[in-house]
Lab assay of single mutants.
Amino acid sequence: DETGKFLVLALYDYQEKSPREVTMKKGDILTLLNSTNKDWWKVEVNGRQGFVPAAYVKFL
């Protein structure tokens, strides 16, 4: 149950560059965990948590 969690859509592919980031593919649906930083949002994708560039995702 994803109640209270926001979902975001990956607009572009992103390859993680550090262990704190996660890789996503364009079209992936991600669970948004934290968006307090304007540049990097914490998400969960494929069972992994990490950061992606905020400009690469949008709210569903």
Rank of each mutant, 00 (worst) to 15 (best):
residue 7 L to Q: 12
residue 25 K to T: 09
residue 47 G to L: 04
residue 45 V to E: 03
residue 48 R to T: 07
residue 59 F to M: 14
residue 49 Q to E: 09
residue 48 R to K: 13
residue 37 N to T: 07
residue 16 E to D: 04
residue 40 W to T: 02
residue 48 R to N: 07
residue 35 S to G: 10
residue 56 Y to M: 12
residue 12 Y to Q: 13
residue 43 V to T: 01
residue 52 V to C: 03
residue 30 L to D: 00
residue 18 S to N: 12
residue 32 L to T: 02
residue 50 G to R: 01
residue 50 G to A: 02
residue 52 V to P: 00
residue 5 K to F: 12
residue 23 T to V: 03
residue 60 L to G: 05
residue 17 K to D: 06
residue 54 A to R: 11
residue 56 Y to G: 08
residue 21 E to M: 05
residue 19 P to R: 09
residue 40 W to Q: 03
residue 53 P to W: 03
residue 10 A to D: 00
residue 47 G to R: 04
residue 7 L to W: 10
residue 58 K to W: 08
residue 14 Y to V: 01
residue 14 Y to G: 01
residue 14 Y to H: 04
residue 36 T to I: 09
residue 13 D to C: 04
residue 29 I to M: 07
residue 36 T to M: 11
residue 10 A to C: 10
residue 60 L to A: 07
residue 10 A to I: 02
residue 40 W to F: 07
residue 50 G to S: 02
residue 6 F to A: 12
residue 34 N to E: 15
residue 60 L to Y: 11
residue 3 T to K: 14
residue 48 R to S: 06
residue 15 Q to K: 12
residue 1 D to N: 13
residue 37 N to G: 11
residue 13 D to K: 02
residue 51 F to I: 07
residue 59 F to T: 09
residue 16 E to V: 05
residue 43 V to M: 02
residue 11 L to I: 12
residue 50 G to P: 00
residue 17 K to W: 04
residue 6 F to Q: 15
residue 6 F to T: 14
residue 19 P to I: 09
residue 7 L to M: 11
residue 26 K to Q: 11
residue 29 I to A: 04
residue 12 Y to F: 14
residue 23 T to Q: 04
residue 8 V to K: 01
residue 50 G to C: 02
residue 52 V to L: 02
residue 1 D to P: 14
residue 22 V to Y: 02
residue 9 L to D: 01
residue 5 K to M: 12
residue 49 Q to M: 10
residue 60 L to N: 06
residue 46 N to A: 10
residue 49 Q to N: 08
residue 12 Y to N: 09
residue 39 D to P: 02
residue 13 D to E: 06
residue 58 K to I: 15
residue 30 L to H: 02
residue 8 V to G: 10
residue 46 N to M: 09
residue 60 L to Q: 07
residue 26 K to D: 02
residue 41 W to N: 01
residue 5 K to Y: 13
residue 56 Y to K: 08
residue 21 E to P: 04
residue 42 K to D: 04
residue 42 K to Q: 12
residue 40 W to V: 03
residue 47 G to F: 05
residue 11 L to S: 04
residue 18 S to W: 06
residue 6 F to E: 10
residue 42 K to W: 15
residue 6 F to M: 15
residue 28 D to M: 11
residue 42 K to I: 14
residue 40 W to D: 01
residue 26 K to A: 14
residue 19 P to A: 12
residue 45 V to A: 13
residue 25 K to I: 08
residue 3 T to R: 11
residue 33 L to H: 05
residue 36 T to L: 10
residue 36 T to P: 04
residue 20 R to D: 14
residue 50 G to L: 03
residue 38 K to M: 09
residue 27 G to R: 02
residue 56 Y to I: 07
residue 29 I to L: 08
residue 22 V to G: 02
residue 26 K to E: 08
residue 4 G to H: 15
residue 21 E to V: 05
residue 20 R to I: 14
residue 6 F to R: 14
residue 49 Q to L: 08
residue 45 V to C: 10
residue 24 M to V: 11
residue 5 K to N: 12
residue 1 D to I: 13
residue 29 I to F: 06
residue 14 Y to K: 01
residue 24 M to L: 09
residue 47 G to N: 07
residue 53 P to N: 02
residue 42 K to P: 01
residue 15 Q to E: 15
residue 32 L to A: 04
residue 50 G to Q: 01
residue 60 L to V: 13
residue 20 R to Q: 14
residue 4 G to F: 12
residue 17 K to H: 08
residue 13 D to Y: 04
residue 27 G to A: 03
residue 33 L to C: 06
residue 47 G to D: 07
residue 4 G to D: 10
residue 38 K to N: 11
residue 8 V to A: 10
residue 32 L to E: 00
residue 22 V to T: 06
residue 34 N to S: 13
residue 21 E to W: 03
residue 16 E to T: 08
residue 3 T to I: 14
residue 2 E to A: 14
residue 29 I to N: 03
